[in-house]
């Protein structure tokens, strides 16, 4: 039986092929069969996680909490200097100058990414806004969020900082950042479940050394990840505690 690997379905599809190269590289190095399963939605993925169908996952920090505290997963590594930050953006010509200018009924363009949505909602709190007082419009990508802002269908958009930076100059030039998060301790991580725990040390050492591996370098490039750093159990617990304070 091959092990099952999956990736949090929350980022630009252009990096997806990188995860297939990664999986091929990893199978060779570890000498085990690993099947990469990609999901379109968080709900589908969470159902399979709960059903025990996932042994290794590149998870967003919100799911990491469930994986570690309820399902016995352990974080192996996190990507070097890649943190999960969000920006709230408006159309460049929007009359909104600060978050505090927003009022009840604000139309918020967001994605199903729990990470960005939670950080975005926290940054709206200074305007006395919460889930009950805004109108959420959920889109499938940050490009569609940008379009909805430019078409005047929504007032503000929540976008992963990294995705915002990757928008074309043309689109970014027509948008404006209202506020950017600077949390710096919330990030994705690669975790393994009980079925792969016996490979934990080997996996960590392989991944940490990946930038020095001839083939590994190219794989990392295609994933747009510089390298991996090991995560201690306490680092993982600290991040999960922090996220606990952010969700009600």
């Amino acid at each position: 039986m091959p092990h099952n690997f999956t990736v949090s379905p929350d980022f630009a599809p252009d990096h997806m092929s990188g995860w297939f190269y990664f999986n091929t590289w990893l199978q060779r190095k570890l000498g085990v069969d690993i099947h990469l399963e990609l999901y379109d939605t968080f709900e589908q993925q969470r159902m399979d996680i709960r059903a025990g169908k996932v042994d290794m996952i590149y998870a967003n920090p919100y799911d990491a909490s469930m994986l570690v505290r309820e399902l016995g997963f352990k974080a192996v590594v996190r990507p070097v200097s890649k943190r999960d930050e969000a920006v709230i953006v408006v159309a460049a010509d929007s009359p909104i100058a600060t978050v505090e200018d927003l009022g009840a009924g604000t139309r918020v363009a967001t994605t199903a990414d729990p990470d960005v949505d939670t950080i975005g909602m926290i940054m709206l709190e200074p305007a006395d806004l919460d889930a009950a007082s805004v109108q959420k419009h959920v889109y499938n990508s940050h490009v569609l969020i940008a379009k909805s802002l430019l078409n005047g269908e929504t007032d503000v958009g929540f976008v992963l900082k990294q995705s915002y930076d990757e928008l074309s100059d043309l689109i970014r030039g027509r948008l404006r950042v209202l506020v950017a998060s600077q949390i710096s301790v919330v990030h994705h991580a690669l975790l393994v479940g009980p079925a792969m725990m016996d490979r934990f040390d080997e996996l960590r050492d392989l991944l940490v050394a990946m930038p020095k591996d001839e083939k590994g370098v190219g794989v990392l490039e295609s994933m747009e990840i510089r390298g991996w750093e090991p995560m201690s159990e306490e680092q993982t617990e600290f991040m999960i505690d922090l996220i606990d304070t952010l969700i009600d």
Binding site: E100, I122, M123, E125, P126, A127, D128, F238, D241, L242, T245, L246
Partner: peptide, 10 residues
């Protein structure tokens, strides 16, 4: 652990 965020004026 304590985590603080920006409160609203009201």
């Amino acid at each position: 652990t304590s985590v603080r965020r920006k409160p609203s004026r009201s």
